[in-house]
């Protein structure tokens, strides 16, 4: 259990480094805010319309696909570690699981959710 101490310490130390870097540059850099300077940067053009507009639903679909498939990938990790011990039984079980996964995958493909237009 005490091996996890290293992870805790590196997360604390690296956040400290991040805060220090941002903090130091906050005090060192000069600041002369102007109205135009604080506008969103669009290569010199005046911004038209709101900056946070509605975004394509495509991103949402890919996020959902990712959730489903990534959980299935994670499910394979414990199996992969003990494949050698499980022998043929483990292989057949996982093969059935992968076939079910692939049925879902090809269904998604046929439905056109993997197209990006």
């Amino acid at each position: 259990m005490k091996e996890y101490l290293g992870i805790l310490i590196i997360i604390l130390l690296s956040s400290l480094v991040a805060i220090l870097i941002v903090g130091i540059s906050y005090f060192l850099g000069e600041r002369k805010p102007k109205k135009v300077k604080l506008l969103p940067y669009e290569c010199g053009m005046t911004t038209i319309g709101p900056s946070r507009r509605r975004i394509s639903v495509k991103y949402y679909i890919f996020a959902m696909l990712f959730l489903i498939f990534d959980i299935e990938v994670l499910f394979m990790y414990p199996w992969a570690v003990i494949t050698k011990d499980l022998k043929l039984f483990g292989f057949v079980e996982m093969f059935i699981f992968i076939v079910i996964l692939l049925i879902g995958y090809f269904y998604v493909w046929r439905k056109g959710a993997l197209e990006w237009e």
């Binding site: 540059s25 906050y26 850099g29 000069e30 600041r31 002369k32 300077k37 604080l38 969103p40």
Partner: peptide, 8 residues
């Protein structure tokens, strides 16, 4: 480090 920090 010495550059101006702009927060839009």
């Amino acid at each position: 480090f010495f550059k101006e920090e702009i927060i839009p």
